[in-house]
Design a protein around this nucleic acid. Structure first.
Lengths: 193, 193, 193, 193
DNA sequence: TCGTAATCGAGACGGTACGTCCCGTCTTTTC
DNA sequence: GAAAAGACGGGACGTACCGTCTCGATTACGA
């Protein structure tokens, strides 16, 4: 009985949950990360403000989840290609999502909030960075192992450079996150100059 | 440029100007960039709020100037040394200022504001980035010319990497901006892996 | 009218409402109408500034309601007496409230704001003047009907004179609104010279 | 030499003085009494703010003088006519000035300021009211003496009523200060009902 | 089929900072 | 050496959101 109740409640909550994430993404699309107040998102989702606060401690936490959902479809290409090529294609796909959805906007906002909010800093660090950087590290390690990358010794360093370059670009000129930038970033990180 | 400045700063009180910058730096030290409200800075500087708004369009603009003043003493070492060494020593000196003054705190705050504020983005880009990155580019160009840096072709790329790594570190773990990090960043940017 | 009120005051806290009116009256007592800032009243009522702005469009609107509440206990004496006597007693009671509460102070302030603020002008006109003048007109009409007031033809004119004399006195020398003044005003308005 | 200097200063001052009064009247015409800030008047008069503060302690004092200048041309008609007629013609002329210049606007503003400012209250009382009411009292006294006004005993009372009615009308509906109102006010004050 | 308890929308609430306006005084610069 | 131009400290304004807290209407369940 309890389990059944819980299930039903969960199901209902899940629908709300999704509509809130959608509303958050839409709001970021329409008015940008910063102007997307909790109030606006709640209204958009046809939900009470409290319902949002019940599940996420802050706007940043909500948007972290929204961001993850938006980029969840971007995966690293298979090992049939060179490391350099795989990374390039991955970044191109990622940037495509950034510009076609509000994901770029959201990531920029989250990066901005890290500066001021310790909680957000930790959350982004553990909930986003680690996980994303491991996606990059794997192909680089494979490239080192295959001898493709003669100059690279530490895969973490290279992944770090890629992420750092993307973040900086997001802050300075987000619309320039294009194919050309993807290639430059990968080459710079892997020592192809 | 001088004439333009003179026109814009007509009759501005130099003493107030300084006391406001000092108060801003002090406030960032005491309570951090974000909690440093204009009201607090004005009170600290014993100045009316309007006196700040008269000369700076935003908190970010005020802190950009404060930041520049704080790091103005950090200069690139002379050409007696290798490029790698010069960059390392420069960064070590810079990070020392970051941790001993509120400069690191402020730069983090500014980077955070870039995400949300187009005006700040432009200002930081033109008022900080260009000028700082040229400081880095010069020694790298010298290193390329002297044959010290065999692998590096484009100095701008390397300077970009250094700045990107610093920014990312400021956002994630500012207190880790130390000598070790300086060496790693320079080596990563110059292809010494 | 009740339904309309109910719609507009949906979920308004009666306790806050009262505490705000009380705080406004107290503030006017302590520091006068003009120095009673919204901020001060809010602090006095232990209420956020926005809670006041949510329900009243301006300080004048708030004080109009405060005034009405303060004078709501002053009523026209019964018809057992002559018109002249009734009006006199009514004014004496009114002036007593003026001097024992902040009502006089407030009315003076409202009159002052009428000069500068079109909105206030309308509000005072419809919300105060019409309703108060009808209180005066009734006994005068009764006096005309009973033959007591041979010289008076238009009751509105007499009521007008009484109100005008009170307003002018409030502006010039509020502390002189006493029994003697009440008698003079009534006699002047009714043609007993 | 001193005398010559003084004369020159005085002459210069007199010109400024006039230009300030003109600017004040113009500003009241254009934007109303309340929005006529000292800054605006100073700019309009091509004069420093301080120059105004040197001669007048407050905006009200400045406008009191401006008002007097504007209505200085309105005088009581000669004794060839009845008291009632003289007063009526005087008021009609006064109201004409009110509507054709900013005098009405200004008087309304001054009345409004009386409520809040003790200094203004005194100034208007002594500098305006006494002097104006004596203008009204004279013809009423003459009317009483000639037997024209059988019902009127105290001239001051009647003058008071006229002024009170005008003030109230200025606050409530200034544009209704017309010939009809002049007649009604005079008749009400003199007991012609 | 109906009460009744949980849920949730709607939004009121105390609070904080914002950026603006104007006051009346003080300072600099220009004529 | 006077006065314009306007910088200055100060203080209230009305607004925007924050995150918390009621209040009712709706709903979905057990009787």
């Amino acid at each position: 009985m309890v389990a059944e109740n819980e299930a039903r409640t969960r199901r209902r909550s899940a629908a709300k949950h999704k509509s809130i994430l959608d509303a958050a993404a839409l709001a970021a699309s329409n008015v940008g990360y910063d102007a997307s107040t909790i109030e606006l998102i709640a209204a958009q989702a046809e939900v009470g403000k409290q319902t949002i606060y019940r599940w996420w401690p802050s706007k940043a936490a909500l948007y972290l989840e929204t961001y993850k959902q938006l980029v969840s479809g971007v995966t690293m290409p298979s090992t049939d290609h060179s490391c350099r090529h795989r990374l390039q294609r991955f970044l191109v796909a990622l940037f495509s999502v950034y510009s076609h959805t509000s994901a770029g906007n959201i990531l920029g906002g989250l990066i901005g909030e890290m500066a001021s909010n310790l909680e957000v800093r930790k959350t982004v660090q553990s909930g986003l960075l680690l996980e994303r950087s491991s996606i990059l590290i794997d192909p680089i390690r494979a490239g080192i192992a295959s001898g493709e990358l003669g100059n690279v010794i530490r895969a973490e360093e290279s992944a770090d450079i890629i992420i750092a370059l993307i973040w900086k670009q997001l802050l300075i000129e987000p619309q320039a996150l294009n194919t050309r930038f993807a290639k430059r970033a990968v080459d710079a990180a892997l020592g192809y100059q």
